[in-house]
Design a protein around this nucleic acid. Structure first.
Lengths: 230, 230
DNA sequence: GCGATACTTCGGCCGTGACCGTAACGTTCC
DNA sequence: GGAACGTTACGGTCACGGCCGAAGTATCGC
């Protein structure tokens, strides 16, 4: 089969510890410089450069030159989904020794997963919206109800229905959380929600991590709109 | 981060050519013996055995003893989704030399993707059901409409709504086809549909491949129920 | 122009891991 | 019991690929 070679190339690209560290660091959806990624992977800049070249050649990351910096980001949402699915299998088959460091704790509490929210916060949001009949989720798929749509309208979040034809239903993607083992909200809906939380100052990115922290305002708003106690 | 080690382990397990070949062979959802997998991966039985031990230890495959055979299958749908997502990235970043052999041709026409239908047939089915307003699909999610539910009832396919509570809507998972680059029907719905096609004799598995062939009866039924000309 | 910063390329060292041959082990069938 | 089949264990070879040091190429600020 012709596609097999490509498959092994992609998988082995992700299977190296240093490169995995870089991909991990890029999972929050932002673009990072080569030196930042070298630091994240605990290797020297030369080594990192080689890895980045390979990742770019394999189509996993995209590079953008800007002055003397080179910004690297995941090439597409498909790559993010791939990484997420690998993490899920990894977490699944792992009831082994789990060393929960303090940084891990923050990650488990709330983090971004490429472009949407994950961790305890992400799952709590999904749970709340399900309880409030604003969305419906299974392991496979999800939809936004009329109540959900009106909530987003109240929040000032524009949900561009990608299918303007005639279907009024809005769909979203469930994304199994590797720390909570339960689905949170992904897809375009999750991305819009996450973006709103950031711009409205409900949450803030934690420096040098995928973790996010909930602000006082955010705590209040989450209670107000979603009936979540954090 | 604690999870990173597990991530690299899983990815590098999949990143070896021989193991990738085996996983590929298991992608049709059936259980195969070690010798069959050795043949599929083009290695000696001893080598294959070592790989299978590792794959099992990593939680990618499950082993079942039966007489003097040992049947190996993918450990879970999550693993199948992971493989699929890797294939998708691999296909995505590959506008390179595509050597389309005769076997590839059959695969592109119709094949199983773990437990549901893919290839030209799979995409055609999805297209037809969308056109007939029996399902709605985006890249992220999908649902079955009332018309869709009644079709499945006519076909004698029981769709156990996994959420018996009160939601009458049935959800399904879109799965981006790596050969057609468009979504086909996955999830529980796709699995039920595929199983029905097999048991009703609409399609038949091609020996030693993930490809399936459409029978004369199948051609007729697909026209009758889905208005598809093959 | 100059040095400083950011990144890449080159060359050589070294460890990991895939592979096979041989051989042993365990089941099943006759 | 013994033959046939299938799987596992061990030892040795070999090649691929990661890693760093040193040197080379772009871009910024002065």
């Amino acid at each position: 089969m012709a596609s097999q070679g490509a498959f092994t190339e992609i998988a082995s690209l992700a299977g190296d510890p240093a490169r995995a560290g870089m991909l991990h660091a890029l999972m929050d959806g932002r673009a990072l410089t080569a030196s930042e990624l070298a630091q994240a992977a605990h290797v020297t800049p030369q080594t990192a450069s080689g890895h980045l070249t390979k990742l770019a050649a394999g189509g996993l990351i995209a590079v953008e030159k800007q002055g003397r910096h080179r910004y690297h980001r995941l090439a597409s949402p498909a790559v993010a989904r791939m990484l997420e699915s690998i993490m899920q299998v990894a977490a699944d088959a792992r009831p082994r020794v789990i060393v929960t460091g303090p940084r891990d704790k923050a990650l488990r509490a709330a983090r971004t997963c490429y472009d949407h929210l994950a961790g305890h916060l992400g799952v709590a949001l999904a749970d709340a919206m399900i309880a409030n009949r604003q969305i419906e989720l299974t392991a496979d798929a999800g939809i936004v109800t009329a109540e959900g749509a009106s909530l987003f309208e109240r929040l000032g979040i524009a949900l561009e229905t990608r299918k303007p034809e005639r279907s009024k239903r809005i769909l979203c993607r469930p994304c199994l959380d590797w720390s909570e083992r339960r689905p949170h909200i992904g897809g375009a809906l999750g991305a819009a929600l996450c973006a709103h939380c950031l711009t409205a100052g409900w949450i803030r990115r934690v420096e040098g991590s995928r973790a996010v922290s909930v602000t006082t305002k955010g705590r209040q708003r989450f209670r107000e709109y979603f009936a979540i106690e954090l």
